[in-house]
């Protein structure tokens, strides 16, 4: 502990960004709430409030991060501050892991328990016999107890290509980090650019896969628990890849402006951690949603 520099922990002055951020979340929450509550009629201004909230939060992020970058570049931060940021980011990623855990939990519960039970397993013979005697338990659940049918998404083809793309991008992100630590700026930009391209192709292919699923396979968000878990898990993962790609683009722009040194590059590090995290989630998805 004593080796740390305690004299210079930077306590920022008053800032208006947090209250702007709180207002933005307020607009997002009431906007999304009233948009969703009026989905059937399509009435109301909820959508516009939601967009205003999103615009405001983007504005806040620009402003807040600009402040932090200026403070960092002008040397106000100590090594202790850097540790605060790193720990903060790690625990944030941990909270994201737990968010995905809720949906994986739902998937495992459905596969291992609720679907077999509906098919009469355990002491549920009478449940099956009385409620849906036609129902046959299977996973992927291609025919629900209520009778809606769908097709199962295979793992070869697009999902396999996407897995390869995303795994490769984890390596390129790592190589970019190594290049940064050795102060090889050209290699850094090249690896970082390649990571962004791989991430973007992944997202495009994901959209293609969704279109295929909706148009030709009848696999939709409403196709019972199989479609539910498929779209919620891959959908939230896709949102995280989108966010990660935006973060990578911001890092690319900052690198182009000459930001980051081999010793001081928290934002880059955080982005890289985040990117590895979305990769790991994808590997789990690929195994449990697509293959098994």
């Amino acid at each position: 502990m004593s080796s740390k520099d305690y004299e210079t922990y930077y306590v920022p002055e008053q800032s208006h960004w947090p209250i702007v951020g709180a207002l933005a979340l307020f607009l997002i929450a009431i906007g999304a709430g009233s948009y969703v509550a009026n989905l059937d009629t399509g009435e109301g201004v909820g959508g516009y409030i939601l967009l205003a909230g999103i615009a405001l939060i983007i504005y806040m992020m620009f402003g807040w991060f600009t402040n932090v970058i200026d403070e960092s570049m002008s040397g106000k931060y100590s090594a202790q501050m850097d540790t605060s940021f790193r720990q903060g980011m790690s625990w944030f990623i941990f909270s994201e892991v737990m968010f995905f855990a809720a949906f994986f939990g739902a998937l495992f519960y459905a596969r291992m328990l609720s679907v077999p039970w509906l098919g009469g397993e355990g002491n549920n013979f009478e449940t099956w016999n009385v409620l849906w005697p036609e129902f046959q338990a299977s996973w992927p659940l291609i025919k629900t107890p209520a009778g809606s049918e769908t097709e199962a998404m295979g793992w070869y083809g697009l999902p396999l290509i996407n897995t390869i793309l995303l795994l490769t991008s984890s390596f390129t992100a790592h190589f970019a980090h190594v290049a940064l630590e050795h102060n090889k700026r050209a290699a850094l930009k090249a690896w970082l650019g390649l990571t962004i391209i791989l991430g973007s192709i992944f997202l495009v292919l994901q959209v293609v896969e969704y279109q295929h699923a909706y148009a030709e396979m009848d696999l939709t968000l409403t196709s019972g628990i199989y479609g539910n878990t498929f779209y919620m898990l891959t959908g939230f993962h896709g949102m995280h890849v989108t966010l990660g790609t935006i973060m990578l683009i911001v890092m690319f722009l900052r690198v182009s402006r000459g930001h980051f040194t081999p010793d001081n590059h928290f934002a880059f590090q955080a982005t890289s951690w985040y990117w590895h995290f979305v990769d790991v989630v994808w590997v789990l998805l690929f195994v449990f949603v697509y293959i098994l």
């Binding site: 739902a106 519960y109 459905a110 328990l113 609720s114 679907v115 039970w117 509906l118 409620l131 659940l141 629900t144 107890p145 209520a146 809606s148 968000l221 409403t222 019972g224 628990i225 199989y226 479609g227 539910n228 919620m232």
Partner: peptide, 16 residues
């Protein structure tokens, strides 16, 4: 949005 996490008719379970 028509999912059935908690609806047995779609393979889900309110107990979930």
């Amino acid at each position: 949005f028509g999912t059935s996490f908690f609806d047995a008719a779609g393979g889900g379970d309110p107990v979930l």
